[in-house]
């Protein structure tokens, strides 16, 4: 996983509440048993004029020239709610997004971001709204900075917001760490736990079952 420290980029506002994972990547767009080939299907239901089609809907923010190459997404409450599909995060990543800024996230989506190098920034809705209005004045010049070292979102000279992120997710993103590798450092403790637990709760362990 690519480490993330700080990013200054075009930010695309999609200020809707409850953007669910099926809106981010419709199930019909998940065509293979894999993590790639998903960018084209990102926001397909809103991005294209027809279901399954590929003709861009000019109304949709990502189809507007000024937002080409956006790497930061500004959105509303409960972002990534719905289905647990990690494909939503894979699609955002493949498209080029490295940070989402929203007031709240579904917990599963939040965890999926951490594990794929996308920073899920939590900011108050009114802060996001003010950044979005400023961005919209001139999206290509009014770039937004997400700084994970300082835990700040900056937009021009007017906006500088501090955000909260838990220590471990922050570290995993900053260093691009793989969770399995981290956990395997605790292997002796896991083995000791299992041995103890097998005596305490033998019914949990099914290998003795015929």
């Amino acid at each position: 996983m690519q480490p993330f420290t700080t990013l200054t980029a075009v930010a695309a506002p999609l200020l809707r509440a409850n953007v669910d994972t099926d809106a981010i990547i419709p199930s019909r767009e998940m065509k293979t048993v894999g993590k790639t080939g998903l960018a084209d299907g990102l926001f397909a239901g809103w991005r294209y004029t027809a279901i399954g089609g590929r003709e861009p809907n000019p109304q949709f923010v990502l189809n507007q020239g000024a937002f080409a190459g956006a790497r930061i997404l500004l959105s509303g409450d409960n972002f990534g709610c719905g289905s647990s599909r990690e494909h939503a995060v894979w699609a955002l990543h493949e498209y080029g997004f490295r940070a989402v800024v929203a007031p709240s996230y579904s917990p599963i989506f939040y965890g999926n971001c951490i594990r794929n190098g996308i920073v899920p920034v939590r900011l108050a809705a009114d802060s996001i709204a003010s950044i979005a209005s400023w961005v919209q004045l001139d999206p290509r010049q009014h770039l937004v900075t997400v700084d994970l070292m300082q835990c700040r979102v900056q937009a021009g000279s007017a906006f500088d917001f501090k955000f909260d992120i838990e220590p471990e997710p922050r570290l995993m993103l900053l260093e691009g760490l793989d969770g399995i590798d981290l956990t395997l450092k605790s292997r002796p403790l896991i083995e000791a736990f299992l041995e103890r637990d097998r005596r305490g709760r033998p019914w949990i362990y099914l290998d003795a079952k015929p």
Partner: peptide
Amino acid sequence: IGSTEAEH
């Protein structure tokens, strides 16, 4: 959970 966590 997500697929990466499931793998974990």
